[in-house]
């Protein structure tokens, strides 16, 4: 298992993630761009990503929901842009309803993912641009919910202090 390297830049409200995968670039690309593959890794367990519609092209989108352990449904939308096959693609993420209508109470998030061949596999570099520090906290409180199981131990530790 490889470690992800995180570089947050709070002043610019960006978070950069670098991660190595022991697989050829074509496979890592496929796992990021085909919904039947995305569904298998995108949601942190026990959550599951379920696709409504997916169209991977510039101007296309992935409309899906995160299905939670207590039958929660969090609808999400990814709007794709700047696609260069096996090199990079960008997108805007936001929360929406089952029709894909944006939830304006929540900020959207712009990101870019780059794919680089390197010894033994592929490196991806993801840069997430967050609109503001306030919005970062909003998004994270949503992420916290998705990460329910995993966050439990750590949170318990924090609360006991």
């Amino acid at each position: 298992m490889h470690k992800a390297i995180f570089t947050p830049d709070e002043t610019k409200a960006t978070l950069t993630i670098e991660r190595h995968f022991d697989a050829p670039r074509a496979k890592v690309w496929a796992a990021h761009t085909q919904s039947e593959l995305l569904e298998q890794w995108w949601a942190p367990l026990p959550w599951k990503a379920v696709t409504k519609t997916h169209d991977f092209r510039e101007g296309g989108h992935w409309h899906y929901y995160m299905s939670g352990p207590n039958s929660e449904k969090e609808w999400c939308f990814v709007s794709y842009s700047d696609i260069q096959p096996e090199v990079r693609f960008s997108g805007d993420d936001y929360f929406c309803d089952d029709e894909g209508k944006k939830n304006d109470a929540m900020p959207s998030m712009h990101w870019k993912t780059e794919f680089l061949e390197e010894a033994g596999g592929t490196k991806i570099i993801s840069t997430i641009v967050l609109p503001s520090k306030e919005d970062l906290e909003k998004i994270l409180s949503m992420g916290m919910q998705e990460g329910y199981t995993m966050a439990l131990n750590q949170l318990e530790e924090i609360l006991s202090k």
Partner: peptide, 18 residues
């Protein structure tokens, strides 16, 4: 601690991708 936790979520995602 949110940022840390978000990073864990992403790390978890990538472990699943592995």
């Amino acid at each position: 601690k949110h940022l840390e936790r978000y990073q864990e979520i992403l790390a978890c995602r990538y472990n699943q991708l592995d």
